[in-house]
């Protein structure tokens, strides 16, 4: 029973501390945070501004290196990885959705989506097929060749979600994905997350500060002053 439970854990943070220096002032953004996230779980990290929620997401998503502590993803201790190995791990196993979409402006929607697939060594045809399937899944079948600048914020965020999910990552990290969207577009994004979470058992870790987002998630992790509440 214990083994089953352990194999269900996809992310484990062990005593994660992250300290920043602002001039001569030491800012402890995270203090000895430990938690486990199960496979297929949709988790929201919440907290007030400055509580350390984005910093925590960056540690879990291997975008930053904790000052101390360990992040284990799918039984892999990431603290032993080199930067190059982490890059490769992110490319193949993790997906990211950023607050400001972070699409490459020169590339069309489909090109933005298949870029990471191409980097995995897949051929162009495979990439295009997978990318268009994912864009259709997020409801952008009529925008495949459109540049980001010609799309609304909600549409751009959906391209960003398609990009993050096209390579079927083990975990999707989303940092305030609805912060720049109106409530209708926000709902569409959250419903998409919910859909992929339910239908594909996609593990999702999302940072948000909107209370109404909680109805879409399975669990809420609250942070205050860098510690779990």
């Amino acid at each position: 029973m214990e083994n089953n439970t352990e194999s269900n854990v996809i992310i484990e943070a062990q005593n994660v501390t992250r300290t920043f220096w602002m001039g001569e002032v030491e800012v402890r953004a995270l203090r000895d945070v430990s938690l486990k996230i199960k496979r297929g779980e949709f988790v929201a990290i919440m907290g007030s501004s400055g509580s350390g929620k984005s910093t925590f997401l960056n540690q879990l998503g291997l975008l930053d290196i904790p000052t101390s502590g360990t992040i284990i993803i799918d039984s892999v201790d990431t603290s032993r990885m080199s930067e190059k190995e982490k890059g490769e791990f992110r490319l193949r196993n993790l997906g990211y959705v950023f607050q400001d979409y972070a699409l490459l402006p020169e590339l069309s929607a489909i090109e933005n989506v298949y870029l990471s697939l191409m980097m995995q060594g897949k051929n162009k045809e495979e990439c295009q097929k997978a990318a268009s399937a994912m864009l259709i899944a997020v409801g952008l079948e009529d925008r495949l060749k459109q540049l980001p600048s010609k799309m609304s914020g909600g549409q751009q965020q959906r391209v960003s979600i398609a990009r993050a999910l096209a390579h079927k990552p083990r975990v999707l990290f989303a940092d305030e994905p609805c912060a720049n969207l109106d409530s209708t577009a926000s709902k569409q994004v959250l419903e998409l997350f919910r859909k992929f979470n339910k239908e594909e058992e996609q593990t999702i870790v999302m940072v948000t500060h909107e209370d109404w987002h909680v109805e879409y998630v399975d669990r809420i992790i609250r942070l205050k002053d860098g510690v779990l509440e």
Binding site: G87, R90, R92, Y96, L104, P105, L115, M119
Partner: peptide
């Protein structure tokens, strides 16, 4: 700069 960061974040190799 941010675009480079995003490319790095999604795992695109520095050389590329």
């Amino acid at each position: 700069k941010r675009q480079i960061g995003v490319q790095k974040a999604i795992g695109i190799d520095q050389k590329v």
